[in-house]
Design a protein around this nucleic acid. Sequence first.
DNA 1: TTCGCCATGTAATGTGTTACATGATTGT
DNA 2: ACAATCATGTAACACATTACATGGCGAA
Lengths: 192, 192
Amino acid sequence: MKQLTATAKVILGMLAMRPRSGYEIKSFVDRSTRFFWAASYGQIYPELRRLSQAGLIEGTDSPTGGRQRTIYELTRAGWHELETWHSEPGEHFDYRDEAMLKLFFAGAVAPKRAAEISRERAEQAAEVADALRAVEAGAPGDDQASYAVLRFGIDLNQFIADWFERQALAFDEGIPLAKLPAPEDPEEQEKG
Amino acid sequence: MKQLTATAKVILGMLAMRPRSGYEIKSFVDRSTRFFWAASYGQIYPELRRLSQAGLIEGTDSPTGGRQRTIYELTRAGWHELETWHSEPGEHFDYRDEAMLKLFFAGAVAPKRAAEISRERAEQAAEVADALRAVEAGAPGDDQASYAVLRFGIDLNQFIADWFERQALAFDEGIPLAKLPAPEDPEEQEKG
DNA sequence: TTCGCCATGTAATGTGTTACATGATTGT
DNA sequence: ACAATCATGTAACACATTACATGGCGAA
């Protein structure tokens, strides 16, 4: 393991909290990190095997009745790898948003849709914020750091909802631009 | 073309603004939509061929001296496809953030790192916000909608920077939790 | 003549989702 | 008996980056 894969990072972290089966990892991911770090079975099971072969985790057979089940836990090497990753600076982040792409082209494709797109995006973000607020209300408190993560999810989505709501109004009213386009050279109008 | 690919959407939009070569599409993407919708050569060139075969765009040879170059523009079918996509509701978005993952596990791995992680993330977001502000200052104004997109990038990243800065202080001071964990069953402590 | 940019493209690799297949257990 | 949930896994496909290969043009 020279580099942990994206899925390896969630798995190792989940197992640091407590030992789990692949199924439990998946269902906990779906109830917690999904909004900023998802993982599917197609990644989890193969990754569990790789991590096991690399000696970072160890599986123990513990069937429930006739139903097979493997509980994984971190090895010492796994803890070390996890701590190394966790202590390294430089985190990646990605933001991909189709509404922004549509808005970017709205002037060329359908200027009147700009307000509508904004309102749709605002609604979407508000729904996510509400879903996360339900999580907050329904769950007993976690430790401070993972509660902060949940809080961030709520606040971020609320921010997005508010921002696009305000922007939709601005489009409705046709708020003038602070900066006007230079009409000469169309090449130069593209922001660099 | 039953469904436009992610790359097809940027390409069609870029060509709606004006005809371009593959190289120009890539460099404009890098200067504009990159923060919320990236595309690499490995996607652009094959996609240009597919779109051309599907009749949505049309390429014209226009070499500069002995340097080959193909300028693409939308066909009528391409305009139609673009407008269809643009008018559909339901936009996808993805947010992936490694700092959040680290924070989520901080309690189990290294509780003292929580403040540090927050501060790193705040700095990162502030840098992105500054980079986008430089774009704003250096470029002549675009149309209202694509200017809004730029503004959103700035505001969003500034929001993230502020949020994590505040959170870092909270971690420093060990602000008490609003909700305390129920100590009995570790299973139940996982927020659902 | 060398460097940076314009210009096109492919191969290898990595990342990730969806759908499917299989089968046991628990609760209604 | 049936549905939901527990549990593991694979195959097909889609998406995306990186690195490489090729070569012309213009300026220092």
